[in-house]
């Protein structure tokens, strides 16, 4: 057997095993994260976006089907559920902040969550996106593990939701400070809160990098809006299904 044929055989063996795809996924992420950190957290070098692009290019390049890749990578995917439950911890640790500003937080979370969903829905209708894309976009402002869960329940595509959620975070982190300066919002708590509610974890990281108080309120808004949105969107669908 030639050298090349033997190498090919090794590849055929490895690509059928989870280990190869797990290693590729973690490796891609580590490199992407290194790039992101060394760029001083430049939003467009988001490590998730970079890893997704890199892994996708590998799959397309090697002609590997997504199912085969996911069969290995599903061990990482499995941790999304436990990570969602673990979001209780950062909320618990900031509970004093929640209590100190409880009425402002309660009102802003409920109204903010409704506004976020409504704006996305109206804009999607305006530009005429198809139904499944619209459903995948609706929960885009909340943290990805929760957004994907909501998307699955209402009949969206969780993969697409993951992408648009990450893009939402990138946009929020990139333009948030400028937008809030233009709107003349000076209160650090309000600024952080807007970052967390509109652009979840990626926006929260950005807010935290700029100001400690803004970061705390961003984390509170991100956690609570995830919970409220997970209840609101399916409930909204239930109400609307009676109308049509």
């Amino acid at each position: 057997m030639t050298e090349q044929a033997r190498l090919y055989e090794v590849w055929v063996y490895l690509q059928a095993e989870p280990l190869f795809w797990l290693t590729l996924t973690i490796g891609a992420y580590l490199v992407a994260d290194k790039l992101y950190q060394s760029s001083g957290l430049f939003p467009l070098l988001n490590p998730v976006a970079l890893s997704i692009v890199f892994v996708s290019l590998c799959l397309t390049g090697f002609g590997v089907e997504y199912e085969r890749y996911f069969n290995g990578a599903k061990f990482i995917h499995f941790l999304l559920g436990p990570a969602t439950v673990a979001l209780a911890i950062p909320i618990y640790q900031r509970w004093d902040t929640v209590l100190r500003a409880k009425s402002a937080i309660l009102i802003s979370i409920s109204l903010g969550a409704v506004i976020a969903i409504t704006i996305t829905y109206l804009l999607a209708m305006m530009v005429g996106l198809d139904e499944v894309t619209t459903k995948s976009l609706l929960p885009r402002n909340v943290t990805a593990p929760i957004a994907m869960g909501i998307s699955e329940i209402i009949g969206g595509i969780p993969s697409l939701t993951a992408i648009v959620t990450v893009v939402t975070g990138i946009i929020g982190a990139a333009v948030g400070s400028f937008v809030l300066d233009m709107a003349r919002v000076k209160n650090m708590a309000a600024r952080g809160f807007a970052f967390g509610l509109a652009s979840h974890g990626i926006g929260t990281a950005r807010a935290l990098a700029k100001n400690r108080q803004a970061g705390v309120f961003a984390a509170v808004a991100m956690g609570l809006s995830g919970i409220v949105t997970a209840m609101l969107i399916p409930f909204g669908f239930y109400l609307l299904s009676d109308v049509f």
Binding site: A101, L111, N187, F193, A194
Partner: peptide, 29 residues
């Protein structure tokens, strides 16, 4: 392009609204 448009305008509008609501109710306490 339409999806990107929805995300960009949606995110900006959500941020401004949320910040205004929080400022309006947050200043009282």
């Amino acid at each position: 392009l339409r999806v990107l448009g929805v995300i960009i305008f949606g995110t900006i509008a959500t941020m401004i609204f949320t910040a205004f609501i929080f400022s309006a109710f947050g200043s009282t306490e």
